[in-house]
Simulated assay, not measured.
Amino acid sequence: LTFERSHVVSGAAGEVSDADYPDTWEHAGLSLPLRYEFDPGADADGVTVTVPLAALNQVEGHDFAWQVPGLREELVTALIKTLPKALRRQLVPAPDHARAALDNLEPGSEPLLAALGRELGRMTGVQVPRDAWRPDRLPAHLRMTFQVVDDRGAVLAEGEDLAEVRQRVRPQLRETLSALADDLERHGIQTWDLGALPRSRQRQHDGYLVQVFPALVDEGDSVA
């Protein structure tokens, strides 16, 4: 069989840039690796961001809800289609409304659903309640997967709900952060000789700048 280039390459392919599907996600001073997988029906279908355990507390989920640029318009279109029919039929065609809304939004500056609802309301007069959105109905490839790894790269937990993933590795996270702050740890303090207690300290760990947060613990007749 003989094919012309136009038969096998989409005319829109030239519009796709590396920036649409970056190799890393820049977040809170971290450069987090991204992996793309096309495997419909699999848990890892779509985009997976790898988060080092020590940096997990610095990661905020709302930023990732915006998805990578190459999937953002498809994401917003799909979100509009999750709305109840009474709202959805006022926002057709959904792709056009998605594109117009994104033109006036700054990705990552605020939670996606709040920004999208406000902008659609401004554009159309249609007020979309926060609980009308159903992100749980999104196709799997439009929901970011979070993968937490240890210093050796071993996967400790992964899933689409960052809070739930964080909860699953809480014991390991506490142990890791405690080790990073080992030089700050003291017990049996009965006289304040610490000076000003900093709100946070930064530590270099495995190529990442990690924040630790000093705190006082009541030990009865002393603090630690």
Rank of each mutant, 00 (worst) to 15 (best):
A54K: 08
P33S: 13
E37K: 03
P84M: 01
E74P: 00
L83R: 00
G11T: 05
F3L: 15
G46T: 05
H97V: 02
K81I: 02
D20Y: 03
Q90C: 04
Q90G: 05
R5N: 07
R89C: 01
L1T: 13
A55S: 15
D20W: 02
L56D: 10
A65Q: 11
R72N: 11
A54F: 11
A19M: 06
D39V: 00
T48W: 11
Q58M: 15
H27P: 08
G29P: 11
P52L: 06
G11N: 08
L56R: 01
T2H: 15
G70N: 09
F3M: 10
A86S: 14
A86V: 14
Y36V: 09
R5C: 08
R99N: 08
R99C: 06
V76F: 06
D96N: 03
L34I: 10
P22Q: 03
E73W: 00
W25T: 02
L83N: 05
P52Y: 02
T50Y: 09
F38V: 14
L75Q: 03
W25M: 10
D39R: 11
V76D: 12
A86K: 14
T77Q: 09
W66S: 02
L56E: 09
L75K: 01
S31A: 09
G11R: 00
R88N: 11
T77W: 00
A65F: 09
A44T: 14
V47G: 03
A42K: 13
D63R: 14
S31L: 06
A13Y: 15
A98G: 08
D18C: 00
E74M: 07
I80S: 03
D45C: 05
T24M: 00
T48N: 06
A28Y: 04
V51H: 04
L34W: 06
V49T: 10
D43Y: 05
P40N: 12
K85F: 14
W66H: 08
H27R: 07
S10M: 08
Y36F: 15
D63I: 07
A28I: 01
V51T: 03
H97M: 12
E26T: 03
R72E: 10
R89N: 11
D20H: 04
P22H: 07
E73Q: 14
S10F: 13
L71V: 00
L83T: 01
V16W: 11
E74I: 02
V68G: 02
Y21R: 02
R89Q: 15
F38H: 15
E37L: 15
H62G: 02
V9R: 04
V92K: 05
A19P: 12
A55E: 07
F64Y: 06
G70H: 09
L53A: 11
T2K: 09
D20I: 01
Q67P: 03
E4V: 00
P95K: 02
Y36D: 13
N57T: 10
Y21W: 13
A78K: 05
L87N: 01
E73F: 02
Y21E: 05
A65T: 12
P33R: 09
A65N: 04
F3N: 07
P33Q: 15
V68Q: 07
A94M: 10
D43E: 15
E26R: 05
P52F: 04
H27Y: 10
K81Y: 06
A28Q: 13
K81M: 08
R99D: 12
A54C: 08
